[in-house]
């Protein structure tokens, strides 16, 4: 099979959009709670990565989860399934202040 190509830039009207992350738009603004990881507690087991329905978790070079907040819908499946309880929830309206702290 031929590899997929991106949309040619000069065509204004195409019937087909080539698949890429977020082709249908961002879903981060659905979130009520934001997941926050405690990197001291995290053992890098990657269970959160496996269970995330939105592909919003990637693992960094130390094997700790990084949340892609543009797509995370805040379902907290990662928090419930974390075996060492390293992920906690912060209300989205208070998240900016909490992260700065």
């Amino acid at each position: 099979m031929t590899p997929l190509k991106r949309n040619p830039p000069n065509r204004r009207f195409t019937c087909i959009t080539y698949p890429e992350a977020g082709a249908m738009g961002l879903t981060g603004d659905w979130r009520i709670f934001r997941p926050v990881v405690d990197k001291e507690k995290c053992t890098g087991c990657q269970i959160c990565w496996m269970y995330c329905p939105d592909t919003a978790i990637t693992m960094d070079e130390n094997n700790k989860p990084v949340f892609n907040l543009e797509y995370c819908k805040g379902c907290m499946i990662c928090e419930t399934n974390c075996p060492v309880k390293a992920i906690s929830r912060v209300r989205e309206t208070e998240a900016e202040a909490a992260v700065e702290k």
């Binding site: 082709a23 879903t27 819908k73 805040g74 379902c75 907290m76 499946i77």
Partner: peptide, 11 residues
């Protein structure tokens, strides 16, 4: 990929 419109928390 991400960005799909399933309900939040849909397995």
């Amino acid at each position: 990929t991400s960005g799909q419109r399933l309900c939040a928390g849909c397995p």
